[in-house]
Amino acid sequence: MERLSENRRAAIWSVVLLFVGLFVWEISISAQTVNTGELTEYELLTGAGTAKAGVPPPSEVVVKAWQELSNPFYDAGPNDKGIGIQIGYSIYRVLTGYFLAAIIAIPLGFLIGMSSVAYKALNPFIQVLRPISPLAWMPLALFIIQDSEASAIFVIFICSIWPMLLNTAFGVAGVREDWVNVARTHELGAFKTAFTVVLPAAAPTIVTGMRISIGIAWLVIVAAEMLVGGTGIGYYVWNEWNNLDLTSVIFSILMIGIVGMFLDAAFGLLQRRVAYVE
């Protein structure tokens, strides 16, 4: 028998694991039987005869997903919007906060990476601000900005700035001296050196930082939207929990994972583009 390639074998295993997982889930749910025996009056009064709200089986989630994904952009009022609209809001907030962070983090990271004085001056602030949970900023942001939408964006900004800032600084500081000497012996000015030598040399490290940042931003947006409410995938999860619609909760959890995967893959692609072998 011809041996299958490694990728094919891995793909087969993935599919097998998926079906085994779903099967076990389905079986374990249908095992939760409803009490159908003789009930006392007390039991009837306390609702023991009705089905308990349980974790839905995967089949229900699939049906729900089909319904939602076949019409993702409907809008039937503030508490009933399609999944596409909710995810769209989340992505909009993430990208806005993220790019604002990039605009500040990358030039500042360049400065810190090039000048050890700037690094030493700013380092204490970075070390104190970096470990703060982004959600801890939320009350202050709401008070100062007075707008829940902008506060959510601010939270994304503050959480995605650090990996980009530190990775840019690290990448720029680590550019090989030989390459800087090439720029010097070719009489390149500071800007030309920064763009034609330092930036491409540090790009893989910078993009790694950007990739970490987008991952964190997507983690944080769900929590932030649970707090600020209104729209977005985080709000949607919390809203469906309040509705006790666990099928929708599970469906939206899956959607959060899938969108996160695509965001990461986009930066993975960028990372491959700027990579080089020494």
Partner: peptide
């Protein structure tokens, strides 16, 4: 200071690894 009047060939080549051979020269 360094100058284009004084070209250098370094021991470790010092080519820019993200550029092709031709682009390293046109640089």
């Amino acid at each position: 200071g360094p100058s284009l009047d004084r070209g250098v060939v370094f021991q470790n080549y010092s080519l820019l690894p993200w550029l092709t051979a031709l682009k390293n020269v046109t640089f």
